[in-house]
């Protein structure tokens, strides 16, 4: 049922492709994330960073292991849990590994997530995490290119607060700028600690 819904939401998926999709398993590389059957190019995105400066994703993160997540700071569950986990594991990595990683948090709530707010919020987890904001069309195009479901803005309550539905997965781009592994919600520190050094070391065939 969920698979069917997924196919409907994502459009063109044919049932036959499932066998191909799952033929590729992270276990082959000793990874705990899910290796994609074919790499996805890093989105060509120019957004605004937490200092209000333009940020060209491809140029600024070229050569880095880049962990890309779409979320928002008024999120009580998925987003701070992912960021806390990543923030903690970054402290445990050898500096030579840590220095080669960029964590990029793109807001799906540009209305409320100003650059200042993004910066302050991310600093709770790791001040090196990069917070980006931009117009909805640009951010949505990037998510579409990664086959992620698009954010859904929920209705405002009596206080004007609203929630934003968004993808729960983090996409890992290896230093060759290819998106290769997806990390679903529920991935823990130990999984990151296992995978991050490997993602910097694996030589990919494609």
């Amino acid at each position: 049922m969920l698979v069917l819904l997924g196919a409907m939401v994502l459009g063109c998926t044919r049932p036959d492709d499932r066998a191909v999709a799952f033929a590729s398993d992270g276990a082959a590389h000793g990874l705990r994330g899910r290796v994609l059957p074919a790499p996805l190019p890093k989105p060509d995105l120019v957004l605004t960073d937490a200092n209000g400066e333009p940020f060209d994703l491809r140029r600024e993160t070229d050569g880095y292991l880049t962990l890309l997540f779409f979320g928002y700071t008024s999120c009580p569950d998925i987003c701070p849990i992912h960021m806390a986990s990543l923030g903690a594991v970054m402290q445990t990595l050898r500096p030579t590994v840590r220095e080669r990683i960029r964590v990029v948090f793109v807001t799906t709530d540009p209305e409320r997530d100003t650059p200042e707010r993004l910066k302050a919020w991310l600093a709770n987890f790791d001040p090196t995490f990069i917070g980006l904001t931009g117009d909805t069309a640009t951010v949505n195009a990037a998510q579409r290119a990664l086959y992620l479901p698009l954010p859904q803005i929920g209705p405002a309550d009596s206080t004007g607060a609203y929630q934003v539905g968004h993808a729960a997965a983090i996409v890992a781009f290896t230093p060759d700028n290819q998106g290769r592994v997806m990390y679903p919600f529920g991935i823990r520190q130990a999984d990151w600690a296992n995978d991050l050094p490997k993602l910097l070391a694996i030589e990919w065939a494609e």
Binding site: A21, R34, P37, A38, Y147, L148, A169, P184
Partner: peptide, 20 residues
């Protein structure tokens, strides 16, 4: 060779967290 539909399925699978 890229297989966009297969990638889409895999992303959906990973994103919605697996069925196993």
């Amino acid at each position: 060779m890229r297989r966009p539909a297969a990638v889409a399925t895999a992303v959906a699978e990973a994103a919605r967290v697996g069925g196993r």
